[in-house]
Design a protein around this nucleic acid. Structure first.
Length: 198
DNA sequence: TAGAGAATAT
DNA sequence: AATATTCTCT
């Protein structure tokens, strides 16, 4: 259990000092302007010589961020790749062809509000690995439940090996799920789910 | 400069 | 394990 890699974080977390063991620092880490913008107040202001047991819940520690655009630097919550979402992903990749499906174009084709290029890039990386595993006959339906939920279009398997005569765009037909994405006004109808952790 | 892909972090 | 973030190229 000690070496269980899934527990290292909580182990580390438990070893952190307790709230009352922390010594308040005197330096402010954030400019007054930013603090005001984020509605963050110094819990032990000069008016309190001795730290009282916190009357208010502890504020998150803020680190100075040199950015004029908080929205751009705010961490996005992790998304959940549901079978539905993955299906849309596979359709997009199949439509583009294995060799010219890149994160940006896949993201645009999927047309899902809130889905970023980074989200797709990360998923595409795993998907390519899965296809390699598949070619070598190493499919583990337990570990690969999500990927197994949408069959890999045969076209993709044909294209997955780089070869001079099949590495160019071949646009057969638009998958039905892509059609529905186009007819809808604006975004595709799929909802993006997020996890609570993080 | 954007952005793809691999490597690494959480 | 799943997903995010960073790094290295082009």
């Amino acid at each position: 259990m000690r070496d269980n890699p899934s527990n290292w974080f909580s182990t580390w977390e438990q070893q952190l000092p307790k709230q009352e063991e922390l010594i308040p620092i005197s330096q402010t880490l954030i400019t007054p302007k930013l603090a005001n913008f984020f509605n963050i107040h110094n819990p032990h202001n000069h008016t309190q010589p001795h730290p009282q047991p916190n009357p208010t819940p502890p504020q998150p520690i803020s680190v100075e961020v040199d950015s004029s655009d908080p929205a751009r630097t705010r961490r996005r919550p992790r998304i959940v790749w549901t079978p539905q979402l993955h299906k849309r992903f596979v359709d997009a990749v199949a439509y583009l062809g294995f060799n010219n499906a890149v994160p940006k174009t896949v993201m645009q084709l999927m047309n899902i509000d809130g889905l970023t290029r980074e989200n797709v890039a990360s998923h595409l990386q795993k998907y390519r690995l899965y296809i390699k595993r598949m070619e070598s006959g190493n499919v583990d339906p337990v570990n690969d439940q999500l990927f197994a939920s949408s069959p890999v279009p045969p076209v993709l398997l044909q294209q997955s090996r780089p070869s001079s005569d099949n590495c160019f765009p071949r646009q057969h037909h638009v998958p039905s799920s892509m059609e529905s994405a186009k007819t809808a006004n604006g975004q595709g109808s799929l909802t993006l789910f997020q996890t609570g952790d993080y």
